[in-house]
Nucleic acid binder design. Structure first.
Length: 450
DNA sequence: TCTGGGGTCCTAGGACCC
DNA sequence: TCTGGGGTCCTAGGACCC
């Protein structure tokens, strides 16, 4: 089943009698940044403090991060921005385009601070990390004190507000973090491992089952019909019948809620099995040439990531889509997997394949809204099989050229050197009307203190 | 005018093999 | 009289995450 104590550390302490005593039960911490993108923006612009702020998705499409003031107005995650403009005007909401360069850099800074607390860390997402802490909380007194120490150090060093949750499993740590975020009484830190059962159950009764990590909208709705409404209801439900109805993932979730650790810390980020790059266009496109330029650009983006993890791809998937929200328009979604005769990480080879695919799926008479590529059948470049028509000299050359390309683009910005296929006009470019400066990664955009 | 962009895991069912 | 059964691999689709 994969469920066990979840503890495999070799750190045994010896007692005075040289008898190994059981290692401390695992304690996971989950630390995440509140309203991450908004907080990044606020860290560099004090005028954004205490006013309603949203950060929009690519293409300025949806609200993907909201300040508390905006959440209080009832604006939902993912709400289409154009529908909110009136409301925004009324309440003076400031809307910013997303600035992923900034967020990525800030994310790294947070992780650097957290690593000082525990090297046993899994960077789970751009704004969340899990840590193993059972062997270190005593250095701070207890878990709660450690949580506050993390909070204050991250705040001081990065300007970002974080919350911390502690639990004996990852799912419980997530839940603790949720409590810390939503209930002022915790002051940003919640330790479930140091709570009576009554107290814990009290909190579990207050939170809806859909908030549990691993329980999404669909499953929450099904659970509700079974009268499983709260976190506690789920914890106390019959695990066997849940497994039958929902599968092994649900079984693990319930075990984790009950304190049996099934999910380990993943400290080593595994290589991606597929790499995707896609964008909606800033406006609708009909012209194959222009769409081709966008496809070529996305190939370059994906290929750069591919080389960064030292992999090669065996196939390229390319797709185009019309605007599904315009019901009056003729709709078409085309996609095609183009197998490569030989695995490759060369942007030029991958581009050729993608454009062959585009040629096959493109239909005239439609207005297109989006295109993208996915690199598939990835494997480590080092494990690559020799093929019949191998030409070692070509391969060496290709590797060198790609190295130079990546080097230049890293230093001078993506797309500084690109294939001709990616074009120069960028008719497809997304809207990003209100992007803040790349304060931390570009000399020309450093914040200025006045 | 206008609606994001990535990923993973699991399961069921079909093809195929012996 | 009567139509096996088990194993593996692959794919598509569904669910979840941020």
């Amino acid at each position: 089943m994969g469920c066990g104590s979840g503890f495999s550390s070799s750190l045994y302490q010896l007692s005075g009698f040289d008898v190994p005593i059981a290692p401390a039960a695992p304690v996971f911490a989950l630390v995440d940044v509140n309203n991450f993108y908004v907080s990044c923006e606020r860290a560099f612009d004090p005028r954004l403090a205490r006013v309603p702020v949203v950060v929009l998705s690519n293409n300025d499409g949806c609200a993907v991060a909201r300040s508390n003031e905006v959440k209080a107005l009832g604006i939902k995650m993912g709400a289409p921005w154009f529908k909110l403009k009136d409301l925004a005007q009324q309440h003076g909401i400031i809307a910013l385009s997303s600035n992923y360069t900034l967020y990525g850099d800030m994310s790294n800074r947070v992780v650097m601070v957290l690593k000082q607390f525990s090297p046993d860390i899994e960077v789970y997402s751009i704004d969340e990390s899990f840590l193993h802490v059972e062997t270190i909380t005593h250095l701070h007194g207890n878990a709660k004190a450690m949580g506050h120490a993390m909070r204050s150090r991250v705040r001081t060093w990065t300007g970002l507000p974080v919350c911390a949750g502690f639990g004996s499993t990852k799912t419980l740590a997530k839940f603790a973090n949720h409590l810390a975020k939503k209930n002022a009484v915790f002051d940003g830190v919640c330790d479930l491992t140091n709570m009576t059962n009554e107290e814990r159950n009290g909190w579990m009764t207050k939170v809806a089952v859909g908030e549990v990590w691993g329980v999404g909208r669909r499953i929450a709705a099904r659970l509700e019909t079974m009268n499983v409404l709260t976190v506690l209801d789920l914890l106390q439900a019959d695990i066997k019948s849940l497994r039958q109805q929902f599968g092994v993932v649900m079984e693990r979730t319930v075990s984790e809620l009950r304190g049996t650790s099934c999910l380990e810390l993943e400290e080593i980020t595994p290589d991606k099995q597929q790499i995707m790059a896609s964008r909606s266009f800033g406006s609708m496109l009909t012209n194959k040439q222009q769409i081709g330029e966008a496809v070529a650009w996305h190939v370059a983006t994906a290929a750069e990531k591919l080389r960064a993890q030292a992999s090669v791809a065996g196939a390229v998937y390319v797709f185009v889509q019309t605007n599904r929200f315009r019901e009056q328009d003729a709709q078409y979604n085309g996609g095609l997997v183009v197998p490569l005769p030989d695995v490759s990480d060369d942007t030029r080879t991958l581009t050729t394949a993608a454009l062959i695919g585009l040629n096959r799926i493109y239909r005239t008479g439609y207005s297109y809204k989006k295109c993208g590529v996915m690199l598939m059948e990835l494997e480590q470049k080092a494990n690559r099989q020799e093929t019949l028509f191998d030409n070692p000299r070509h391969r060496e050359q290709s590797t060198k050229i790609m190295e130079v390309l990546d080097h230049i683009n890293q230093n001078w910005g993506r797309g500084t050197v690109r294939t001709a296929a990616a074009g120069f006009t960028q008719q497809w470019a997304m809207r990003s009307q209100n992007r803040t400066p790349r304060y931390t990664t570009n000399w020309l955009e450093l914040p200025v203190a006045r």
